[in-house]
Nucleic acid binder design. Sequence first.
DNA 1: CGGGTTCTTGATCGGTATCAACGGCCGTGG
DNA 2: CCACGGCCGTTGATACCGATCAAGAACCCG
Lengths: 233, 233
Amino acid sequence: MATLSNTFETFAHSVKLAEPASPLRQRICELGRPAHLTGGASLELEDARAQLVYLTHGSTKLVAHASEARDQIIAFHFAGDTYWIPASDNYSYSVCALGECELLLFPADIFLKMAESDPQILRGLIGQMADALRRCREKAVALGRKTASERIAVFLLGMAERIGTAKGTSVILDLPMSRRDIAESLGLTIETVSRQFTILRDAKTIETSGRSLVILHDVSQLRAQAGYLAGAA
Amino acid sequence: MATLSNTFETFAHSVKLAEPASPLRQRICELGRPAHLTGGASLELEDARAQLVYLTHGSTKLVAHASEARDQIIAFHFAGDTYWIPASDNYSYSVCALGECELLLFPADIFLKMAESDPQILRGLIGQMADALRRCREKAVALGRKTASERIAVFLLGMAERIGTAKGTSVILDLPMSRRDIAESLGLTIETVSRQFTILRDAKTIETSGRSLVILHDVSQLRAQAGYLAGAA
DNA sequence: CGGGTTCTTGATCGGTATCAACGGCCGTGG
DNA sequence: CCACGGCCGTTGATACCGATCAAGAACCCG
C-alpha cells in the first residue's frame, strides 16, 4: 500500500515539481487533501468548484449524472493519472472508485494560482489536459457515430493500451470495471455489452475467464472492427 | 472585414500578451500563419502536428473523420475562440469554415515552447482548454445518453448561449451551420433533425424563417426538454 | 425565372433498448 | 470446507426510436 509520503512523492514527480526543499512544493503539498476510497465508494466533494485529482493507486470512473438514472461515464482513470473533475454545470459529476484507491485532491483554482510561478507545472498540466481532450473527442466520435460492435472494439483496444500486458501475440486484460460500467461508458446497455462479448468469444477474437479477465487473441481483428482510419498507428 | 494587423491585435489581447513592444509578442506573431477561408472551405494542414487556432472572424466546425462517410463534428467555434486541432490519431481532424473566416494558425508545440516564459499565456490556455473539455464532456453525455429531442434542445440552448440575441422573452438565432452540420454534431441524421424542428415548430416552442433563422419562443420548455439537472443555472 | 441544393415529409427497416428469466460467480456464514 | 444467497452476467422475445430509402417542396443563387 502507498504510504502518505509516498503519495506526495509520486505526485511531485508527476507534475515535475522543483527540488524537494522548494517553498512552492511545500505549499502545494499542504494544499492537497489525501483521500482513501474503498471499492464502489464515491468521492464526496465539499464544494462545487473544479477539482484537480492525482490518482496514486487504484482506478476510478468519472461519472456525469444526467437526469433520472441515466449516468454517463466520461472516463476511466488509473494510477498515475492527473485529471479534472469539472464544476457541476448542466450535470453533476462524481468520481467513484473501482477498487481500493489512494488519491490527492486539489481545488483547481488555488492550485493554478500557486503554480503560476512555475512554467514547468503549467506545461505539464496543459499536456495532461490535451490528452484528456483528445480522449474525450475520440469518445465523442464513438458515441456519436459507432455501432455497438465498434464501440466494444474501441473500448477493448483502449483498455489494452492502458492496462493490458502483452503475452505473445495476445494481450491480457484484468478489467477493474463491471459490465454496467462498460455499458455506461459506451452509451449502451449491459445486455448489449454482454451480447457483444459473446459474439467476440464465439469468433475466438477474445477469451474471458471469470468476471474481470479478458484475453485479446486477435488485436488486428479488433482494430478492423473498431472503425479506425486505415493507416492509423 | 478584419485587416491583418487587426487579426494579430485581437489575438494578442485574447491571450493576454504583454505590452506591444515585447520581444515575446514579436516572436509569437511571427509564428502565426494567417489564413482566410471562404464558406465551406477546409483548412489545409501541412503537417500532422497539433495546431492552435485563433479565430478572428466567422465561424468554423471541427470535424473528426471516422471511417467511410461518417464524420462527427466535435465542436463549433465562433469569432474570438482559441482552440486546438488535435494531431490525427485514430481519426483525422479538419477545420471547415461555415462562412467567410479569418484565423491565425500556430503549431502547438512551438507556441507552447515560446509561451513557457509567460505564465499569463499559459494560464489563459489552461482556461480555454478547461472550457473545451467541459463542452466536450457535455457533448459526450448528450451523444451517449440522450434522445433526438433532448439533443436538439441541448443544441439550441447551447447556440443561444453563444450566438443568440435576446429579444424580450425570446432568443433570436442566426445559425451559420446547415441541418447536415447539426446532424453531424448531434450524432443524428438530417431527416431526424428536420423532424424534431417540425415538432418544435408545431408546439410553438420555436419559429423558423428561411434556412438559418430560428427564434426560441419558450426557452424554459427547451430547458425542460434538454434533460438537464433540475437546479442547473 | 430556372436550376440545383437544402430542407421537409412519408414509408419501411433494422439495431439496440427494454422486459423477462435463467445461470454462474463470489463473498458470507455456518 | 461447503452451503447459501445475492448480485452480476448471459440469453431470449419483443418493442421502439431513429436510420434508411424515396419523393416532393422550399429556399437561394445565378
